[in-house]
């Protein structure tokens, strides 16, 4: 039996109040070992207060080819940004 350990994606919360952020990946036989390995590989210098690990195989990613249909529609909707609406100088707190 020489099956390769599965790949896991590692997410670290760097401090309380911040979201978990993807930091990299590693191999581990199971979730518990993945957390242990993530601690050793990605938090040797106090980089985190919490770790998530997710099997890479369980992640569904958008494909680069779908970039246009997925993201182009938002381009024309600049009115979604507050800066689209110029406010008169005299008006405050808005």
């Amino acid at each position: 039996m020489s099956s390769e350990w599965p790949l896991w994606e590692v997410f670290i919360r760097s401090q309380h109040g911040l979201a978990h952020k993807h930091v990299g990946s590693l191999h581990a036989p199971d979730a518990e070992m993945a957390v242990n390995n993530a601690r050793d590989v990605y938090t040797r210098r106090n980089e985190g207060v919490s770790i998530w690990v997710v099997r890479s195989a369980d992640i569904t990613a958008s494909s680069p080819g779908d970039k246009a249909p997925l993201f182009d529609p938002a381009r024309s909707k600049v009115y979604r940004h507050p800066t689209f609406f110029p406010m008169p100088e005299e008006v405050k707190n808005i």
């Binding site: 039996m1 099956s3 350990w5 036989p29 199971d30 979730a31």
Partner: peptide
Amino acid sequence: REALVAHAAKHQAPQAQKAA
């Protein structure tokens, strides 16, 4: 390394930890 894989296979079912 192989023993860890065997252990993981054996305990696969009750392995649903909640995300923190």
